[in-house]
């Protein structure tokens, strides 16, 4: 819904992002405004290579900011640099977007795309689901390298495990669609030890 998929209808409430009504924007406009959604199940696009996909995306973002498109050389250099963040082999750039990628490779590709687009707000939806420890570490390292004072990450997870690698500034506990608890990073450890029940009781 935050990314603008038309299969969802908002029946009530509002989403304000940077003073703008996010829900009034098309998916591409949200991206231009700096919103990035890391998909839980990234889509395969046969026939569209990773490099062409990213070139179209990056140059459109630049156009929206009044910048010239990158030259082929500069683009490839940027791509190589960002692929290194997630330890992605350069052979992936010529392959169809996510086609034949393993679960871990797809998630790494999400982080790679995020690195290319440099969003101001990234929402990573259960990026840790289905990842082995190595892939998890790579994904987390990528996220940590992209963290800056002027951007934010919302990392949605069920597990403490990811938070060993990505240390959050703030933790929100969501229950039945509402935030029932907000605290610092120590909350994650507390939940790991005591579970969620006490939070639910506290909220009710």
């Amino acid at each position: 819904m935050l990314a603008g998929r038309d299969t969802f209808t908002v029946t009530e409430g509002s989403v304000t992002y940077d003073g703008r009504d996010l829900l009034a924007l098309s998916p591409e406009e949200r991206s231009w405004a700096g919103v990035f959604l890391g998909f839980q199940y990234p889509v395969e696009i046969p026939g569209v290579s990773n490099v062409n996909f990213m070139k179209a995306a990056v140059n459109e973002q630049r156009r929206q900011r009044g910048l010239e498109p990158l030259s082929a050389g500069a683009f490839l250099k940027l791509m190589r640099e960002k692929m290194a963040y997630v330890e992605m082999d350069s052979s992936f750039s010529g392959r169809g977007v996510n086609v034949g990628f393993s679960g871990g490779e797809k998630k790494r590709n999400e982080i790679f795309q995020m690195a290319m687009l440099e969003p101001r707000l990234a929402i990573l939806d259960e990026t840790d689901s289905g990842l082995d420890v190595d892939a998890l570490r790579i994904v987390a390292t990528g996220v940590n390298q992209l963290k800056r004072p002027d951007n934010a990450f919302i990392v949605i997870t069920h597990y403490q495990r990811l938070l060993d690698y990505i240390v959050p500034d703030v933790i929100h506990v969501l229950y039945k669609g509402r935030i029932i608890k907000t605290a610092g990073k120590e909350l994650a450890l507390e939940i790991e030890q005591k579970g969620y029940d006490w939070l639910i009781q506290e909220s009710e």
């Binding site: 990314a3 603008g4 998929r5 038309d6 098309s26 998916p27 591409e28 949200r30 991206s31 231009w32 990035f36 959604l37 998909f39 990234p42 889509v43 395969e44 696009i45 569209v48 996909f53 179209a56 995306a57 459109e60 973002q61 929206q64 977007v97 795309q113 687009l117």
Partner: peptide
């Protein structure tokens, strides 16, 4: 596929 591309800023 269309939505995925648009979510990365590629116009429809």
């Amino acid at each position: 596929e269309l939505f995925y591309m648009r979510s990365r800023g590629i116009p429809q």
